[in-house]
């Protein structure tokens, strides 16, 4: 229960960061929008025009109850319908690491969105490294709380991995935020050496010049 509440708080702080990255009065597609909290905040605080995609039916119905326009389906279906540059932003919040083919989805997001916002838990975070190193077991943290056998996270990555990925694919990083949800060492460390001290990365991307 406490763990669940902590995770919800973490999600809320993610939302703060993402809301701060979105320009007002833009068009936003939120992939894996859950119960629509982020979209609702963006609508209220940034006056965006928002759409969501979500696979969980109960969550979709909650979105509908909030008045949001949401498509029940998987992320690929959610993107296929749209033409190039249909949205100012396409957001993928804490979902990259559960996808079958994150590379394909990011390319698709870059097609549909003029900008893309991606957030993911950083597997290079020192606590993760320390657990793996010291105990020899798969790490479990607040952001990666599951056992190896029931985790939805099948494509774990570090902030460094992601930066290399972007460079190799000619994807421009317009902005990045490195977050530390449990600031035991102080937030400054996360900015100083994100791949070691941040437990989450948030990136704003755009297609690089050809």
């Amino acid at each position: 229960m406490i763990r669940k509440r902590l995770r919800e708080n973490i999600l809320l702080s993610d939302y703060d960061s993402i809301v701060s990255l979105v320009e007002p009065e833009t068009r936003v597609l939120d992939l894996g929008c859950g119960k629509g909290e982020l979209l609702l905040r963006l609508i209220k605080e940034r006056r965006i025009q928002g759409r969501g995609v979500e696979i969980n039916q109960a969550a979709v119905i909650e979105c509908i109850h909030k008045g949001l326009s949401v498509f029940q389906g998987n992320i690929n279906e959610g993107l296929d319908d749209y033409g190039q540059g249909a949205y100012d932003y396409v957001i993928l919040n804490q979902t990259l690491q559960v996808l079958d083919r994150p590379d394909v989805v990011i390319e698709e997001m870059l097609r549909v969105g003029k900008k893309v916002i991606v957030s993911f838990p950083n597997f290079g975070y020192w606590r993760v490294r320390a657990q793996y190193f010291l105990t020899g077991r798969m790490p479990r943290t607040l952001k990666l709380p599951d056992e190896w056998y029931d985790t939805p996270n099948i494509h774990l990555l570090t902030i460094k991995d992601f930066k290399i990925f972007c460079r190799e694919r000619n994807i421009q990083i317009l902005a990045s935020l490195s977050l530390l949800s449990t600031p035991s060492l102080g937030a400054g460390w996360a900015q100083f050496w994100p791949n070691l001290f941040a437990d989450e990365g948030i990136f704003v991307l755009a297609r690089g010049a050809p």
Binding site: R27, Q49, R51, Q57, V60, I61, C63, I64, L68, S69, V70, F71, Q72, G73, D81, Y82, G83, A86
Partner: peptide
């Protein structure tokens, strides 16, 4: 409807 940027939601019921 989505391509036209209309307000539309879709639910598929089991």
């Amino acid at each position: 409807l989505r391509q036209n940027n209309k307000d539309v939601s879709y639910v598929e019921i089991e």
